[in-house]
Amino acid sequence: MPRDTLIRQINQIRDEILILGSMVEQATLSAIQALKNRDINLAREIFEADQTINEKRFAIENAIIILMATQQPMARDLREMTAMLEVNTELERMGDYAKGIAKVVTRLGEGEVIIPLQEIEKMAEIAVSMLHRALGAFVSENHIQALAIPKEDDQVDELFNQAYRKIVEAMIANPGLIDHTNLMLWVIHNLERMADRVTNICERTVFSATGELFEIDSMDEDDANV
């Protein structure tokens, strides 16, 4: 079959995107771990991991641009490559969210704070699971799956609302801790945004597979923050 080179190189970039995705998943779970155990060393490791994520993101972007310039992709190939650029960017941003949570851990130090841990852990679990499956759908061009995954974002939004209420209650009950407790809003915001960005990946999967470019309905962050 002609285009063996192109197909091989696209597969390589797909693999790299999956690796980048698993780095982001790992960073997110580690960030929650660091928060739970108040582990500042682990948090610092996440800063370093984010550096690696950023570098990998640029490497992937470069590989896509080179492939576009040298192979002149058309139709499905072209759609997949532009989608890859988007997904690549989304993953890098998600890495920043993990880093943001790690930053909260270092800011807290050993200070006293009230953490709605149950909700946070659940949010991270769902968001990471969504991301994992969204990337699986992306590389296998499964737009049916991609259309279904964003619906799970509603659970994340619901957990966000629960955690938000707990944090506000904690602030009212313990005004002395408001500085630290406020940081918990960052944590849940980052997790909530992460799940939103999974929806963006799913939209690009649908585009790559079908050529249709549209927003997949799910509660957006404005609704969730009310």
Partner: peptide, 19 residues
């Protein structure tokens, strides 16, 4: 035609999968 062809034969040809 070059971004979202409707027919698989068109897709195969313009992405170079033809033949």
């Amino acid at each position: 035609i070059f971004t979202r062809p409707r027919d698989q034969r068109t897709e195969d040809y313009i992405t170079g999968r033809f033949g």
